[in-house]
Nucleic acid binder design. Structure first.
Length: 465
RNA sequence: GUCCCCAUCGUCUAGCCUGGCCCAGGACAUCGGCCUUUCACGCCGAAAACAGGGGUUCAAAUCCCCUUGGGGACGCCA
């Protein structure tokens, strides 16, 4: 039988980190098994679901490279299927109509709460408000005692007391299914073989088991993976800062880094840290998935992102940087110069923004000096050195790094100066600051004319003692 | 409160199932050093954990129990 997994987000916001991890696990599991990955939108909450969210989620998944074989299906398009199933249960007496209004229940709930209790729905309330035209919800008739066993691929058999589960709603009075009902009907009718989802759903599973049984559907294999927590050990949420995939995209992270990082959260393969996507597909098994919750550690993500920026071809990174520069009002083409710059800057960037934010001096018409750098390095005693450098560099017929090195060797020897003594002032002259790629690389990228122009500006800036 | 899940360095984790190879390995972060024209990269090194208690056993991070701690769920949300 073909393995079929699914990712079933509810469109109430953009794809968040936890959802992305679940999606990745399902995707990897399916791809590893040569199976199929289905995308299903769980939009049964009419008040909270939005079109924009659906688009944001699919965009984020495409960006991550999580391609799906079927879907996106929408539960809101399948209402007749759920109703059909609910009617079947109604006819067989496994479910019944409940006329109690949500408001009445809410009141009872509050009342119980004030007594420190939890409301347990009572079957005999069902006929309250009964009338031919009165709206009703459909509830599943559940056993009052006994044990409900859940087979979990990661945790083994988890046993629940049937007494804990009361007659829950499967079809709301608006005709929409509840989460538990829709999930079961969908997973069954879509022939899902493996359900991989967050830990927070484990508690729902006994209810779903009851539905499967009532419908005489086979229960798929289920694995509950642990959740991702924030640094404070609380469930990852808005107050932890950036929690959506797009937020990380916008902050200059690469999809490869996110995939790699999220895969390693709760899953491992010996001591290996860096995984290409193909490698992940090859190596992913549920056996290596851990059971405990994982804290989202942005520093490690940074390290991975830096690794990918460093190791990706400069041309590819350059393509990603261009739109970022455009946003800053810097129109740049994908040419040799840009690729060379990116090649250098990517060695010292954690995110794409680190590149786009430190690139300006390569394109500036006029260099502005950082005050501190200027006062520390552009001092009178260095003026003749810079002048000599300028003279010698200007006479170079071939402005390449070999020749530049020779010029520097000569100047260093004559003046008995170490390279460091010359390089820093020169760096300030050329870049305006004290941090940049190697000085020869910088000169190579700027080219002879620009180097001489900037040198002469620096020289004229320095007072004569 | 009730139910469910979880528990190895600050963090992600290896080892746990199938006890001995573990005075617990790797990675991020931290600190020190080397390299060096700055910043990075790279390399070398340091510090850093089996939550506590009780069993079982010749032997326990590994098996069992209790405690503690953390998380999740208790909706006509998903």
């Amino acid at each position: 039988m073909t393995v079929r997994t699914r990712f079933a987000p509810s469109p109430t916001g953009s794809l968040h980190i936890g959802g992305a991890r679940t999606a990745i696990f399902n995707w990897l599991f399916a791809r590893n098994a040569g199976g199929e990955f289905i995308l299903r939108i769980e939009d049964t909450d009419r008040t909270r679901s939005t079109e924009e969210s659906i688009e944001e989620i699919t965009d984020a998944m495409e960006w991550l490279g999580l391609d799906w074989d079927e879907g996106p299906f929408r539960q809101s398009d399948r209402l007749d299927i759920y109703q059909e199933h609910a009617n079947k249960l109604l006819e067989s007496g496994k479910a019944y109509k409940c006329y109690v209004t949500p408001e009445e229940l809410e009141e009872k709930r509050k009342e119980a709460q004030s007594k420190g209790e939890v409301l347990r729905y009572k079957r005999e309330w069902a006929k309250l408000n009964e009338g031919p035209d009165n709206p009703y919800a459909i509830r599943l008739q559940t056993p009052d005692e006994g044990a409900i066993e859940v087979q979990d691929l990661l945790r083994g058999i988890v046993t629940f007391d049937a007494g804990e589960v009361d007659d829950f709603v499967i079809l709301k009075r608006d005709g929409f299914p509840t989460y538990n009902f829709a999930v079961v009907v969908d997973d069954a009718t879509m022939n899902i073989t493996h359900v991989i989802r967050g830990d927070d759903h484990l508690i729902n599973t006994p209810r779903q088991v009851l539905i499967y049984n009532a419908l005489s559907y086979e229960i798929p294999k289920i694995a509950h993976v642990s959740m991702i927590l924030g640094a404070d050990n609380k469930r990852l949420s808005k107050r932890h800062g950036a929690t959506s995939v797009v937020a990380y995209k916008d902050r200059g992270y690469l999809p490869e880094a996110i995939i790699n990082f999220l895969s390693r959260l709760g899953w491992s393969y010996g001591d290996q840290e860096i995984f290409s996507k193909t490698e992940l597909v090859e190596k992913f098994t549920l056996k290596n998935v851990g059971k405990s919750a994982a804290v989202f550690n942005e520093e490690k993500l940074d390290w991975l992102n830096a690794w990918y920026i460093r190791n990706e071809p400069a041309q590819e990174i350059a393509k990603l940087v261009i739109p970022l520069l455009k946003e800053k009002g810097l129109e740049v083409e994908l040419d040799n110069k840009l690729i060379k710059i990116v090649q250098e800057l990517s060695q010292r960037a954690k995110t794409l923004l680190d590149i786009s934010n430190t690139i300006d001096y390569f394109y500036a018409d006029e260099i502005e000096y950082e005050e501190k750098a200027k006062s520390k390095f552009l001092k009178p005693e260095i003026k003749p050195v810079l002048q000599e450098l300028a003279d010698r560099l200007s006479s170079l017929a071939d402005f390449n790094m070999d020749e530049m090195h020779k010029v520097f060797d000569q100047v260093m020897e004559e003046r008995e100066l170490k390279l460091g003594k010359i390089a820093q002032p020169l760096r300030v002259a050329l870049t305006g600051g004290t941090v940049s790629p190697g000085i020869f690389e910088v000169m190579d990228i700027l080219g002879k004319d620009e180097v001489l122009k900037r040198l002469s500006k620096a020289i004229s800036t320095i007072p004569n003692n």
